Simulated assay, not measured.
Amino acid sequence: MKVLIQRCLWVLLLGSAWSMAAEPLRVVTAGASVTAIVQELGLGEQLVGIDSTSVPLMADRGLPNVGYQRALSAEGVLSLKPDVLLGTEEMGPPPVLAQLRDAGVDVVVLSASPDLDTLYANIEAVGARFAHVEQATALNQRIQADIAALPAMSEPAPPALFVLTHSANGMMVAGAGTVGDSLIRLGGMSNPAAESFSQYRVLSAEALLSLAPQWILTTSKGLEMVGGTDGLLSQQPALAATPAGQAQQVVDIEDSLLVGGFSPHIAPALRQLRETAAGE
Rank of each mutant, 00 (worst) to 15 (best):
E275F: 06
V105L: 10
A59H: 00
R26I: 06
G87C: 05
S154L: 13
S182Y: 01
Q144A: 15
K221G: 03
T29E: 04
S19N: 06
A17I: 15
R7G: 01
G67N: 05
G170Y: 02
G76H: 02
P156Y: 10
L161A: 10
A277E: 09
A207L: 12
L139C: 07
P114R: 08
L139S: 02
S52C: 07
V48C: 10
V28D: 05
A160P: 08
M225D: 15
M171D: 04
N191Q: 01
A207F: 06
E89I: 03
I253V: 15
A238M: 04
W10D: 02
A207T: 13
V173L: 06
D252V: 01
R201V: 09
A157E: 12
L80I: 07
G279Y: 06
L203T: 10
A36R: 13
V84T: 07
R185C: 00
G42Q: 07
P56M: 09
L257T: 04
L12V: 13
G228I: 05
E90R: 02
G231N: 05
H132D: 00
K221E: 15
G49L: 06
A148N: 08
Q39N: 14
A136F: 06
D255L: 06
V108M: 13
P24M: 07
D252P: 00
V109M: 11
V48S: 04
Q6Y: 12
R101S: 14
H265G: 05
A269D: 07
G222E: 12
M171Y: 06
L14T: 13
V259C: 10
P82A: 12
Y68D: 02
Y200H: 05
P95F: 03
L80K: 04
A30T: 02
G170T: 06
L4E: 14
V133P: 00
V38M: 00
L209N: 10
I266D: 05
G228V: 09
M171K: 06
A112F: 03
L86M: 03
P114I: 08
P95V: 01
M225E: 15
S210K: 12
D106Y: 01
V109H: 08
A160R: 07
G177C: 09
